[in-house]
Structure formats: C-alpha cells, structure tokens
Design a protein around this nucleic acid. Structure first.
Length: 688
DNA sequence: TAGTCCGAGTTTTTT
DNA sequence: ACTCGGACTA
C-alpha cells in the first residue's frame, strides 16, 4: 500500500513508512527537526509519531501536540488513534498555541497574576476595546484622520508578536500611521490597563502570559506535565511562540518539530522562517530529517509547483520528487472576464463530478475572501452546494456579537467591552448613557466590590424614559441567568437570550428573522461545550471557520464543494484544485507588492495553493476586470497573468481559453491580450 | 443625547 | 461595497 492511499483507508501500518519517515517516527530522544516538503506525508508522520510514543508507553496526557488549527489537531489525533494498539489518544493535549495557552493559564495563571476565570477577546473585540479607549483619549480627536480600529489592532498585534519597538513596526509596516506614534502608544497603554481591569486576555496576551509562565517559578509545574512536545507547521511560528517552545525545552528534552520553509505564509502575524532555520542552533543536538518524496501530486503537477518555487529568491535547496507517475498536466485557463471565470469553474466542477470525483474532493482556492463573491452567486444559481472556509465569520455579524456579549457579561461581569455593547441594545441608550450606566453599576470596580450584575438588577439605575421597558427586560434576563447555585443549562440560557433579542433585533436590524435563526445556530454550537466559560473560550479561539450561508442548515451527509482562501487551505489536499484570479494584483495582492519579502511570500502562497492538488490542477486567469481593483479610472481594465508564472514556467501548463466568445465586441476593445486569446482559441481547434 | 442621513476614505491573509 | 465620522433633527 502506498502512503498516499493511507489517507483514505483507516489505518496505515508502520510498514508503509519510507525510510526517512520511519527515522523521524522512531527517533529516540532529543530535539528533532523534520523538514517536510508539501505532500510528503508530514501529517501522517506526526500521527505515527504520536501513536509510536503511546505504544512505547508514554501516557497520552503527557504528550503536547501543537498544531496550526484545532481542526488539524483533531485530524491528527484521529489518525493516530487508528494507529495505536489501544486507541488511547483521547487525552493527548492538542490544539493551537493559543488554545493550549488558554488551557494552561486557567490552571496555572495565578503564578503570573492571571485570574483563572478570564475571558478571551477575539480579534474584533480587541478592535472594539481599542476604539473605546481611543474615544476616551481626547488628544486623538484633534487629528482628523486616524488609523481605523482594525488597523490599530493590527499594529498592536504585530508589535507584540514581533517583540519589536513600535517605532520600527510603524516605519516598516504602517508608514502612513507613523506620524501618530505618540497617540498610538498612549492608546496601547490605556488598552492594556483596561484589559487588566476587565480580567480579559486578547490573543497576544495568551502567548505573552504563557511565555511569562515559562519564565516564572511555576514553569516547573507546567513542564512536568509533559514528556514530549510536537509542533506542526513550525515555519509559521513567531518569536513569542519560539520562546515558549524554548522555555518548554528547558525541562522537556523531546521536542519534535515539523515544517517547510517554502510554505511560510504568515509573516503578517510576525512569523518568520528564521525560527525554523535557527532551530538547530537554538536547540542543541538537533537531528534533522528531510522528507522529499511527494506522495500527493502527480508528477506533471509537481513539476509545475517546483518550477514556481524554484524562482524564489532565497530558499532551502530541496527538490520534491513525485512518487505518483502518470497524470495530466496542469491547465492554465484564460477567461474573458470574471463572469466567464465563474462559469468555467462551475462547468469544470460539474464535469469532474460526473467523472466520479465527489464535490468535497474538489476545491476552489483564492487569495482573498471576496475573490469568490461572483463564483458563489453562480454556484448558487446552479444549485451546487459549497462550504467556504476563511473570510467573513459568522461570529462577526453584529447580532451574533450581541448574543455573545450577553453571555460574556454573565460570565465575566467586569468585561467592559461587552457591557458597552449590551447596554446599547436598549432603546434610547447610546455610548454616553452606556458609559454612565457602567460606572454606576461598578463595571470598572475592583474584584472585591459587589458584582455589576447584582447592581444592575437590584440597584437604582437611572435610564432615559425611552429605555425603561427594555431595561426591565434586560434586568429580568440577567436576574434569571446570573443565579449562581442551580445554573441554567447553556442551551436554555441562549434560548432565554433569544427571547430577549427578538424585539431588540426587530428594532435594530432589517432581517430579524434570519438573525434569530443564527442565534439558534449558536445554541447548536453551544451544545458541544461543557460550560459557558468553555464555550466562550472555544468560540473565540476556534471560531466556526466555514460559512454555508445559502443552503440553509448544512446537511453533513450532503456532498459540497470546498471554497477556501489559500491561507485556510493550508494542510489540505483535494483531488481537483482550482486557483482563481491568477492575475497580477490578485496574486500577488497589490497590497503586498511593497517590498521584496512580501512578494516572496505571495509566491509561496501560490506554491501552497498549487501543491494542494492530487490529480487535477486548473489555474484561472481573467483577462479583464470590470471593477478596477481600486482607484478611479476606466470601468474595466486588462490584467496580466500573475508574475509567478512567467514564460519559462508556462511551458509546463496546457493553455486554453474559456468563455463562449474569445473577446466580445470589436475595435477598441481588443487589446494585446485579445489577440492572444483569439489565437489560443484557434490553436485549440487545431489541437483537437 | 440618540438616531439618521450623507460623504469620504478604504486596502488581505488568521489565532 | 462598507464602515466611520460629522452634521442635523427630534
């Protein structure tokens, strides 16, 4: 049996490992670095390693498996499960750095001054709190244009994760905000104070405090939980994460790390390939095992991927060798415009499905979330079910955040951002009244003062007349749900909140019906969590990544096409992969063409996308865009094929033209690209 | 002071 | 196309 085939069968006996993989799996002790190219059986090697450790007698709960997403951890563990003799992987500690940090801080946080019942702020909460803090600082009002709250959150996160001075980060990554450095610094100071007072931690705090924990006297107690640490996708760790691992390594000898510098695509999160390159230096006695046999893609597909990455400026010399012979060449499909592209993709999807490739074995990948907008419409029109990964989250919708804010104040009554949101749900209450109310119920008070929840229910709060009825409703809600003894089950809590939200949504939002259905969805999601706190943590750290808006409740048995940003496609593989918008300005995104390093990252992004394909790879290139990417000018513009597929690489593709007419109209419409398209269409006639 | 309407500026990827 | 802020009205 081949290694690749094991993906579809439940168990792969150790005999199916190649020599390098087996060396990694059976490694005795000390740090090990696996340099694993795309499709070389990295996940399987990790799964075998976990299974091997357990079979050798390591208790599962003494293994720490850090992966890029919780999905990856779950998949890895279920694979390992099928490999172990007694199947006992359920207690392995697995998850993202952030999720594991949250877990450890609930257990050991006190050692570094963290209250164990903290709430986790997600990305948009962070932005909201920064915004709240900014409006409180008058000096910033004097400047007309100021960084948006999301940008502030980006700057903050980047600074913290890189461990670099604000000045440098601003200069390098946010030059247009550099003039506001003073104001930004004071916003960050105030932001930090607010977080501490509210007993909330943002994503970056989770890592910061985990690192602090590893430098504290409690480090022993954390480290002694584990005998082995395994890290996936190591090329995408940042300085903080690398420091945490180094901290663990002080007492845990067996550190097992897997990554591929050619697939580093998270520099915007302050990740650097430096950490994987420096690993052998930092972890003394490291053994390095390269995996170079690609079991995933057929050789013509791999040849094209290799050609794309070979043009990278700096990279580790390693050439992937295809194990799967035969196969067809990748296709480069030139389309008249975006509509033709959507059309061609749908045609191709249906054609392959008729050939027996199920929809969920097919994927469409793109650089940014909205690149699939038109395609989604066309898929909907043709009744092709799909699930989209990445991009707009269900959780970011205002009404979902409203419900979560209600749950959060119940969970952590000092959470100022959530109170601010909750109180403004009341009719006639805006920012000013909300702030006053928060003061009067003591949201900012010390932990020893009475709970703001009780103050709201029992105290004498002053509200505008218009707010009286809705305030009564809110008090009733909080009174019912904040009962300490005899806690109401989470699902009923959400049901109760839903009743409160009905009139509120009707007043605030257009389509209350649809939004209330989302609340039901939330209740379904909540059913999997053991407690309210666990639910709120889970949902912040591992938000439901897929949105399947159109088709109503997704029937899990139903077959569906995968739509995904390239970032979210990391680690995935499909029989057929289509990459759309392969035009310069899309890949590379024209926001990332500033410096050489970001362009290189975009190149790796294309490489990651291409290497997801097993048998079929189609790259789509729309010749013309109706709405210009940005700025004024013509209503439409011609585009260029992505610079990452220059002529030399193009020879590895079959080219064809999609769309009924090569180019519409005549005269002025036909540019240089037009002739090429016509010629290509002609060539296709002769080729057949 | 809340809520609404209008105009302007905007850039992407994720834990 | 979408959010944010300013102006204006009630």
């Amino acid at each position: 049996m081949t290694v690749a085939a094991s993906r579809h069968s439940s168990a792969a006996p150790a005999a199916s490992l190649n020599e390098q993989q087996r060396a990694a799996v059976e490694h005795r002790s000390g740090p090990l670095l696996v340099i694993a190219g795309a499709g070389t059986g990295k996940t399987m090697t990790l799964a075998h390693r976990v299974a091997h450790l357990i079979d050798c007698g390591t208790p599962p709960e003494r293994i720490l498996l850090l992966t890029f997403s919780r999905r990856a951890a779950a998949e890895m563990l279920s694979r390992a499960q099928s490999l172990t003799r007694d199947g006992g992987t359920r207690r392995v500690w697995g998850g993202t750095f952030h999720a594991v940090a949250a877990h450890l801080l609930r257990l050991h946080g006190r050692a570094v001054g963290v209250q164990p019942d903290f709430t986790v702020l997600d990305r948009s909460d962070t932005a909201d709190l920064l915004n709240l803090v900014r409006s409180a600082l008058t000096e910033t009002y004097e400047r007309k244009r100021f960084a948006r709250k999301e940008t502030l959150a980006d700057i903050y996160s980047r600074t913290v994760n890189a461990g670099a001075p604000l000045r440098e980060v601003l200069q390098r990554c946010f030059p247009w905000c550099a003039a506001d450095r003073g104001a930004i610094a004071s916003i960050f100071t105030a932001y930090t104070q607010r977080k501490r007072a509210s007993n909330v931690l943002d994503f970056d705090d989770l890592l910061l405090f985990w690192r602090a924990l590893m430098a504290s006297p409690a480090a022993e107690r954390v480290a002694e939980r584990f005998d082995h640490v395994l890290v996936d996708e190591y090329q995408d760790v940042n300085a903080l994460q690398a420091a945490i691992l180094a901290g663990l390594h002080r007492t845990i000898a067996d550190v097992f790390v897997v990554g591929d510098d050619a697939q580093a695509i998270y520099s915007f999160r302050s990740a650097t390939v430096d950490h994987i390159l420096d690993f052998p230096r930092l972890f003394e006695g490291t053994r390095i095992v390269p995996l170079e046999q690609n079991y995933r893609s057929t050789s013509p597909l791999l040849a094209a991927s290799n050609a794309v990455i070979a043009l990278a400026r700096a990279r580790h010399e390693k050439t992937l060798v295809a194990v799967r012979p035969g196969g067809v060449r990748p296709q480069l499909i030139t389309c008249r415009d975006e509509l033709a592209q959507s059309d061609a993709v749908c045609d191709s999807v249906l054609r392959l499905r008729e050939q027996g490739i199920a929809l969920h074995r097919q994927a469409v990948l793109f650089r940014t979330s909205h690149h699939s907008d038109l395609l989604e419409i066309e898929l909907g029109r043709r009744n092709i079910p799909f699930v989209k990964y990445g991009g707009l989250k269900f959780l970011e919708a205002a009404h979902v955040k409203d419900v979560l804010a209600l749950l959060r104040v119940l969970d952590n009554p000092r959470d100022a951002v959530s109170w601010f949101r909750v109180l403004q749900l009341l009719e006639g209450v805006g920012p000013v009244h909300a702030s006053r109310l928060m003061t009067s119920i003591g949201v900012d008070g010390a932990a020893t003062t009475p709970s703001p929840l009780r103050a709201l229910v029992e105290g004498d709060v002053v509200v505008p007349d218009a707010a009286r009825p809705s305030m009564t409703a809110l008090r009733a809600l909080i009174d019912e749900l904040s009962v300490e003894r005899d806690p109401v089950p989470l699902a009923s809590q959400i049901e109760r909140i839903r009743r409160f939200c009905e009139p509120v949504f009707a007043r605030l939002y257009g389509n209350a019906e649809v939004r209330l259905r989302d609340v039901d969805q939330l209740a379904v999601l909540a059913a999997a969590s053991p407690s309210r706190t666990a639910f709120l943590t889970d949902i912040a750290l591992d938000p439901p990544g897929a949105t399947s808006d159109l088709a109503g409740p997704p029937l899990l048995d139903e077959d569906y096409l995968i739509l995904s940003t390239i970032h979210s496609a990391k680690g995935g593989e499909w029989d057929a992969v289509r990459i759309i918008h392969a035009a310069d300005g899309m890949i590379p995104s024209d926001m990332a063409t500033g410096d050489a390093a970001s362009i290189e990252e975009e190149r790796r992004l294309l490489y990651v996308a291409m290497t997801r394909a097993r048998d079929v790879l189609e790259v789509y290139f729309p010749l013309r865009y109706h709405r210009r990417p940005r700025g004024a000018g013509d209503a439409h513009a011609y585009s260029q094929l992505t610079r990452f597929i220059p002529d030399g690489v193009l020879g590895l593709f079959d080219e064809r033209v999609a769309g009924d007419q090569p180019l519409s109209g005549g005269g002025s419409d036909a540019g240089a690209g037009g002739t090429a398209a016509v010629d290509d269409a002609l060539r296709e006639l002769w080729a057949g």
